[in-house]
Amino acid sequence: MSTSAGPDITGAIRAALLRGDYVPRQRLIEADLCEQFGASRSGVRSALQQLAAEGLVEMQSNRGASVREITFAEAVEVTEVRMVLEGLIAARAAERVSPAQAEELRGIGADMAQAVADGELMAYSDLNARLHRRVRDIAGHETAKQVVERLRAQMVRHQFMLSLVPGRARLSMPQHQRIIAAILAGDPVEAEAAMRDHMGSVVEALRALEARRNRVS
């Protein structure tokens, strides 16, 4: 059994959470995690504390750790913060993009358009995440990147729900194309505006999804 505690076990549990292997509020039993990931008890405990700091796990006295449930209200607040940070990132990417990186963004945009045309919602969702990730890489703003990636991790279930909303992909596709075009044009002002408008539409979609669920319940 491995006794390493740090990034490896933390990353493994984080990846399992982001894949949806555990449901919200599910208890995370240390002994079970030790067996599943081949880690020491101290390593698992340290990993859970780190994931609690990231907002993915909730620690409760006498109950241990459980998967943190992110409410719609929290998801909206997270997205509002991301709107500001990702706008900054898009502006920086427009200032720094290289010809090779520009070609890659064009390719992702074309693949996204094809996925929408083919009705491949999961493929579109994966490409969406890839586009945002590459824009963060191009921007090279490590502090903003780290904060956004941590915030995005808290949103994974809500993003999955949004990806299945009828018409959502067709609505967001031109928004992403606008972001790509602004970055390729080297226009930081337009890139930031395009990204903020896109993230604003995500906020609106989350609120609409919450209202729809409240009516059903």
Rank of each mutant, 00 (worst) to 15 (best):
V81H: 13
A115T: 10
A123D: 09
Q50T: 15
M161T: 03
D197V: 03
L162S: 02
G140V: 05
L164Q: 14
M161Y: 10
R41S: 15
T3M: 14
V76P: 06
M122P: 01
P99D: 06
D111K: 13
R92K: 10
T79F: 02
A139R: 07
L164K: 11
R213H: 06
V78N: 05
A208I: 00
P166W: 09
M161H: 02
L164F: 07
K145M: 12
A5Y: 10
L17H: 06
V189A: 14
R212E: 04
E204D: 14
C34M: 15
N214M: 15
R41F: 11
A117K: 06
M199V: 03
A205F: 09
D111F: 02
V165S: 01
A12S: 00
V147L: 15
N214D: 15
F37H: 12
Q159G: 15
R196H: 09
P174S: 08
S66F: 12
G109A: 10
S4D: 04
A117N: 05
R168I: 07
S61F: 11
G55Q: 01
T10E: 14
P99I: 01
L17W: 06
V97D: 00
A194R: 03
V57L: 01
R213C: 07
E77H: 12
V67Y: 04
T71I: 04
H132D: 13
A193Y: 05
E95S: 10
M155E: 12
E210W: 04
I9P: 10
V189P: 01
R130L: 15
T79H: 03
E103D: 10
R45F: 03
E74M: 01
L162H: 01
G11R: 05
R45A: 13
A90T: 10
A185P: 08
V44W: 04
A139T: 11
Q154G: 00
G109W: 08
E95F: 03
E54N: 08
G64M: 07
M112E: 06
H176L: 03
F72W: 00
E54G: 09
S4A: 12
A110L: 12
R130S: 13
T143I: 14
A181Y: 11
Y22V: 01
S4G: 11
K145N: 05
P7D: 15
Q49Y: 08
A117P: 02
I183K: 00
G11E: 07
L56F: 08
I9T: 12
P174H: 00
T3R: 14
I180M: 09
D126N: 11
M1W: 10
E142W: 08
D137L: 13
S163P: 05
G43N: 01
R68M: 06
H158T: 07
A47P: 09
A193V: 00
A12T: 00
M83K: 15
A91F: 07
A185E: 10
L184F: 06
S42N: 11
E204F: 09
Q177K: 09
R213I: 13
Q177S: 02
Q146C: 00
R196A: 02
G87H: 02
T143W: 02
E204S: 12
I13N: 04
G64H: 11
Y22T: 11
P166E: 10
G140A: 03
A12N: 07
